[in-house]
Design a protein around this nucleic acid. Structure first.
Lengths: 145, 145
DNA sequence: TCAATTAGTTGCTTTAGTCAACTATTTTTT
DNA sequence: AAAAAATAGTTGACTAAAGCAACTAATTGA
């Protein structure tokens, strides 16, 4: 049964990758943003016409909580709300210029963090890593639960 | 420059795998344990002679917080403290029989979750997944920051 | 038109986690 | 050996993260 081996492998990998992600998210510590804020900035930048309700689904958080975080980002001048012309209840979220600068800064710091992770690798190893990562993503993409 | 491509790939993978891990950790919701408790149970089972201070380093949490969670697990009858014979300040942690049962139950539920993740894969794909996962783990293992 | 839904806000609560002070032990310094 | 410094763990007080429920305003459906 190959399943047993694969499951053990995945469990080991999960523990391993949780650590990698933990290390990676340290780039946020000096940025003044926490994970949820960074994720909001990312999603708002990368989705056109995204509303608060959309974000609750994308991020899987409570709407009350989200409302407060959005308010905070709005007060910080990173986020604007554009009222929908067809539905008076909803507002679309958009990054301000300052918000876009922040997005770029966060991306850059994330890149630096990842660079340090792959720095020890030779070119051949980097190529192999790209292949393995793509493969995993491809294989696990049809997931529903 | 291969770095750019690899960094983009890793960032995409990180977002992807955070979702996988999020799905995976849902198995805890019905178990009555939260992530830190599950991690403690895991670490105590898998490390001989582990103390509370060891756990603060392994898990990266505050000792005050940990002390309370340990107390809770102790009161629930999952965890015993074995005083060190050479240092009166430290106690080693050990799972009780009930704790071991819980460990096995959590493992089993985790397995089920992972099984559902890999269920759609053909045997060849499962083999490929094992190879890719091992490769990533191997390549990223000499990490220091 | 009026009942039911939906988007978002706000008050209240719970949970997660930190920090600092303290006790009881070692360990180190003198 | 005695005093000082360090360490393990507990507890109290606090902050941050997140959920829940009640509410308003707007929209949809009967």
């Amino acid at each position: 049964m190959i399943n047993k081996k694969l499951i053990a492998e995945i469990r080991s990998f999960n523990r391993f990758y949780v650590k990698i992600l933990g290390l990676h998210n340290r780039y946020l510590h000096n940025s003044g943003f926490n994970l949820i804020e960074a994720r909001i900035i990312y999603e708002v930048f990368n989705n056109q016409k995204v509303s608060a309700t959309d974000l609750t689904h994308i991020l899987g958080v409570d709407k009350g909580y989200l409302s407060r975080v959005l308010k905070k980002l709005g007060r910080a001048g990173l986020l604007d709300k554009v009222p929908s012309s067809i539905d008076g209840r909803t507002a679309y979220l958009r990054l301000s210029d300052k918000g876009i600068k922040t997005y770029n800064k966060l991306n850059h710091e994330s890149d630096i963090q990842i660079e340090s992770l792959i720095a020890p690798l030779k070119n051949e190893e980097k190529k192999a890593l790209i292949i393995s990562i793509s493969k995993i993503q491809q294989l696990l993409s049809r997931m529903d639960g």
